[in-house]
């Protein structure tokens, strides 16, 4: 094997240093490979992602992909986190490794592959996330975060939708066989019934799509719980 299991973090770090000239921190926690690094200037003056930063991110993701495919360690999830201390924020990409094999074996299209990527942002500028926060990700966790990520992208993709529904963030987690989605709204004003119906329908559609792909027999997930900020009607 090119990347032996007992030295996986070191070899990944050496690979990134050699090919991307970036110093990354790598950790293998259970079946999850965590990689993180710091960049300067994640957002450029044109208010778009900086090209160099994106390239760094892609490069680190590629190195992580290569390592996770060519190792004898059982790596199911690959998490790459890039933090910008200046901006005070970070971006995390999370991939299910069998999805990577699937696209290489041409089982599904590129669009489908893109839709299986979890993209999360947070305000933690420090790339060195504490070890307690890095836990072994399970498939239900991944599914929950994927649903949340896709909903977030749909809701924030069109600025008018985010204005009407007033949702600024969606978070997901798995809790004892249930996927819990938390919608963070910009205001505390309650949504109208019709707006809630629209939101419910969107959530159900995305969740159903994800569960069908990763848990078609319903063995892992048997419920979906939607939560809003205080004052909103729980569903």
């Amino acid at each position: 094997m090119t990347f032996p299991a007992d030295r996986l973090p070191e070899t990944v770090r050496a690979l990134c240093l050699k090919e991307q000239k970036v110093d990354v921190q790598a950790r293998l926690v259970g079946h999850t490979l965590y990689m993180s690094c710091a960049v300067d200037g994640l957002i450029g003056v044109d208010l778009d992602f900086d090209k160099k930063a994106l390239e760094t991110l892609e490069g680190v993701m590629m190195s992580g992909t290569r390592a996770s495919l060519s190792t004898d360690a059982k790596v199911d999830f690959l998490s790459v986190r890039v933090a910008d201390a200046r901006l005070g924020s970070s971006i995390t990409l999370l991939r299910y490794v069998p999805d990577i094999k699937g696209i290489l074996y041409m089982r599904y299209s590129r669009d489908e592959f893109e839709s299986r990527l979890v993209i999360e942002t947070d305000g933690a500028p420090d790339p060195d996330v504490s070890q307690e926060e890095q836990k072994d990700i399970t498939l239900p966790d991944f599914m929950a975060r994927l649903v949340a990520s896709r909903l977030h992208r749909q809701l924030t993709g069109n600025p008018l939708v985010s204005v009407f529904l007033r949702v600024s963030q969606v978070r997901g987690r798995a809790d004892g066989g249930e996927v819990v989605l938390v919608c963070v709204r910009a205001e505390d004003e309650p949504l109208s019934e019709s707006s809630l119906d629209v939101l419910d329908a969107a959530v159900a559609e995305v969740a159903l799509d994800v569960f069908k792909k990763y848990d078609p027999n319903g063995l892992l997930i048997h419920g979906l719980l939607k939560k809003g900020p205080p004052g909103n009607r729980p569903r």
């Binding site: 090119t2 290569r66 495919l69 060519s70």
Partner: peptide, 8 residues
């Protein structure tokens, strides 16, 4: 090649 790509 790396092992995965070599196998493929």
């Amino acid at each position: 090649l790396e092992s995965f790509y070599r196998t493929m």
